[in-house]
């Protein structure tokens, strides 16, 4: 299995961030996307997840029939995708059932997942009762309870303290050791060994606008 980007255009609405982005991530490898705020990291990650249209070039996930990268991925964005009014257990078991996909192996059971994040015993609490850091870690438990070969992580440890970050880095390493692929946008180094790095440098690019049919010269 291999996640490949060929001649990719990273763009949102009418603004092109980068052109000709290429990378290939093998099983057990990670791609760390770095760069200052607003450079297009989140956009790139949302494109891989299939949440934004790909304006140019293409993504493929080789070796997993004809599945789009999004379907084979976990996406941990800025928001936790958990309901405050429901208990942790309800939230997590919902995602486990909803994301159930016979073509992937089963994930970890609830208690094992929460235990791995150091939050065992809090499953009965409403999600809204947890602190921000706990909420983030509980959201991460979703990645363990449902198996997806690709993890797309957008600033996963931004709200976490050093110990929790290290705990999460351990989980990421385990996922890679099991043959998973990780694509992460982050400021903090996650302490990953086999990590490719894709530095999005704002000075390196020439921010341009997408071919705007309404521009003065018409074809732009």
């Amino acid at each position: 299995m291999r996640l490949v980007a060929e001649d990719l255009t990273v763009a949102r609405a009418d603004r092109i961030f980068f052109r000709g982005v290429e990378f290939g991530v093998e099983e057990g490898e990670a791609l760390l996307v770095t760069g200052p705020n607003g450079v297009g990291k989140s956009t790139l990650l949302r494109m891989i997840a299939g949440l934004l249209p790909v304006p140019g070039g293409r993504f493929t996930l080789d070796g997993l029939d004809d599945r789009s990268p999004g379907e084979a991925s976990h996406y941990l964005g800025h928001r936790n995708a958990m309901k405050h009014d429901m208990s942790v257990r309800e939230n997590l078991t919902f995602w486990q059932q909803f994301m159930q996909d016979d073509r992937f192996e089963d994930g970890a059971p609830l208690f094992e997942a929460t235990e791995s994040l150091g939050l065992g015993g809090l499953e009965h609490l409403p999600f809204g009762y947890l602190s921000a850091g706990q909420q983030r870690r509980m959201a991460m438990a979703r990645l363990l309870m449902v198996h997806r070969p690709v993890w797309i992580l957008d600033e996963p440890t931004a709200a976490l303290d050093a110990a929790s970050s290290e705990m999460f880095a351990g989980l990421v390493r385990r996922h890679m050791a099991d043959g998973g692929i990780v694509v992460a946008a982050t400021h903090q180094p996650l302490g990953l060994d086999a990590a490719h790095s894709l530095a999005l440098d704002p000075n390196d690019r020439d921010v341009e606008f997408a071919a705007d049919p309404f521009a003065a010269d018409g074809v732009a």
Partner: peptide
């Protein structure tokens, strides 16, 4: 709207 606000909608959009 409630699923969009907390990011659940993103995950629903990604499923097969």
């Amino acid at each position: 709207q409630i699923d969009r606000e907390d990011g659940s909608l993103d995950i629903m959009l990604m499923q097969s």
